[in-house]
Design a protein around this nucleic acid. Structure first.
Lengths: 339, 339
DNA sequence: ACTTGGCACTCGGATTGGGGGAGTGCCAAG
DNA sequence: CTTGGCACTCCCCCAATCCGAGTGCCAAGT
């Protein structure tokens, strides 16, 4: 009973603080939320909650604000993901439906997420490692230079210029192209290198050096997690962060420019089939101490290809944000899987 | 004589204000800069400059700050582009030298510019319209779907999926590929459509519908200015803008997210072979009233392929910024041209 | 054992009221 | 045309003050 009400009070504090952005006091709480008790009682509960570390006061004799720990409890036990409204769902379909290629899908997704949540959105490109090879193309640029283009089933296109010591005859290239495609088409990138081991053997001794150079380039592209690309958008929503500016926005902007940091933010989250929330100091970057990340994997039913998420102040609307992230992730997953 | 000194005073005001970020008064001016006249004299000149609209005072009895018009005069007549230091030049070479493909070049350029100028950098991808076709590739995805990949001499890769009503036999595709490449390889994109007019004639009547669909897709990709892509970086440098925050940073962030706005910022500048400066209200977007854009075209000797630039507060170090932009533009131009 | 009203207390934030000073404009003399 | 002098004007900074929301605790009520 008492425990129950304490949790109820915590929920009320989080909700009020999220909507007003101001420390919330016992009186306002008692009034606005229909808990049938007096401010004094709430004060007792609040004192307890503070002892346990769920809330804190900025200064003596101010209202309380939730701590990271408080938000954590709220997210884990006091709230449920809020489904989107039907118009919102429709908007997603319309907005993503018009996409033509992978870049377009990712770009639209980022804008969509940013608009829906009014926060900063981050979307990772479908990972190369988990997708499969659709086609390998070799194009002569100059006698000694070859452009290798790798197309995956997720629509991603990787390119690389190969410099060869000797001239590469067009016929050789054609042969190699055919062999390559026969060997790896439809194969997952991670498994592809194994299929290439005996390709060199098919060529004459004098051809082998050239073949080897091209092959090694293909292998590199296959194996290297390659710069896992991440796209960010909605930075203007940072202005919503609060009036306590440069200090708070600066490190966030810095973090957002580092692909590496973005990748870690998304990458270190848990089960990709569920919405994950990392709150404040739980994030792997100190500049984001006042920031939460809501993320989720997307891809085919069976497997996540990549992740996406949004980033906002710890004082965000978790249920709503989680709902938006989940809905978008599912929808994008469907699109990417069927493409 | 008098005119000359007035200009000298204006230059001093701009330089001082840029370095201190504070309104500059007559006394400080007389001391710090070696104009051999008394503060009183300077006051007279300042009054004149104010009448003519080159400087203004934030409030009565404060120092003066340059107006947009003042900066304009400074840029046009009082300053010269400041060449980079040798170490800086080396840094450019090292940093851009390691680039492997077009995306990489553009990405590195943006980071380089942002770091060099400590401002927000904007780089446009080499335009399709002005570059030429290196290769067209057609790949079967499923019996009725064909992926068209267009590779330009600037290293840019455009892709598009073509849906055909009927099955597309591999042999037909091969033929078409050969014809296409024979027709347009090495041709500028703008001129390419003309070369394709009689391609359809080479096919049998029953093949033509399929050929036509693929061709029209190729044409679209060739003709459409296609989303002219722009990349932005160094947003963290916005924090340097000033302590008068959200109001000033918000519209800028918003503008930076609009590809369209970015394109206009770069696009409307003048002669692409020279460094162009747009100051404050000269910009085609009201959110950027306190912002200047320094931009320049880059590409081969003969012709600019695209533009790049930086964006910062009107109170920026113009000579230095212009020097950095020019140096980077030239170097990137060289790299892109020879690639 | 909780809840409640009462009450003294504590600070942060907004407001007010002077100085202090940088900077200006004008004037009269060089 | 330049210069020193001088009165004047505001802005900015600081300190003192007040106000009130909010707290903690206690003693009484259920």
């Amino acid at each position: 009973m008492l425990e129950d009400r304490k949790l109820e009070v915590l929920r009320a504090i989080v909700e009020d603080y999220v909507s007003t952005h101001e420390p919330v006091g016992s009186k306002a709480l008692a009034e606005r939320h229909g808990l049938g008790v007096s401010p004094a009682t709430i004060r007792n509960d609040m004192a307890a909650l503070e002892d346990e570390g769920y809330i804190a006061q900025p200064h003596t004799s101010a209202g309380r604000i939730p701590t990271d720990k408080g938000y954590r409890l709220f997210v884990d036990r006091l709230s449920s993901v809020k489904p989107l409204s039907t118009p919102e769902r429709n908007a997603i379909q319309v907005f993503l439906g018009g996409a033509v290629d992978l870049d377009d899908i990712v770009g639209r997704t980022v804008r969509l997420l940013a608009q829906l949540t009014r926060q900063v959105a981050v979307v990772q490109y479908p990972s190369l490692a988990r997708s499969s090879v659709r086609h390998v193309e070799l194009v002569t640029l100059s006698p000694t230079r070859v452009l290798m283009v790798l197309i995956t089933n997720t629509g991603r296109v990787e390119q690389r210029v190969v410099e060869c010591a000797a001239d590469v005859p067009e016929t050789l290239l054609g042969e190699l192209r055919a062999l390559l495609n026969a060997a790896v088409a439809g194969v997952r990138l991670a498994d592809a290198p194994g299929r290439l081991t005996d390709v060199t053997d098919r060529f004459t001794l004098e051809q082998r050096p050239v073949v080897a150079v091209v092959l090694s380039s293909v292998l590199e592209t296959l194996v290297e997690p390659q710069e896992e690309r991440v796209v960010m958008g909605g930075a203007a929503n940072l202005a919503r962060f609060g009036p306590d500016f440069p200090q708070s926005i600066r490190p966030v902007l810095e973090a957002l420019e580092e692909q590496v940091v973005l990748l870690r933010l998304l990458g270190e989250a848990g089960d990709p089939s569920l919405v994950t929330v990392r709150i404040g100091h739980e994030n792997p970057y100190e500049g984001l101490a006042a920031t939460s990340v809501v993320s989720m994997g997307y891809g085919s039913e069976s497997e996540a290809l990549a992740k996406l998420g949004v980033l906002g102040p710890t004082r965000m609307d978790y249920p709503g944000t989680m709902g938006a992230v989940r809905a978008v992730a599912r929808y994008v997953g469907k699109i990417v899987a069927e493409a």
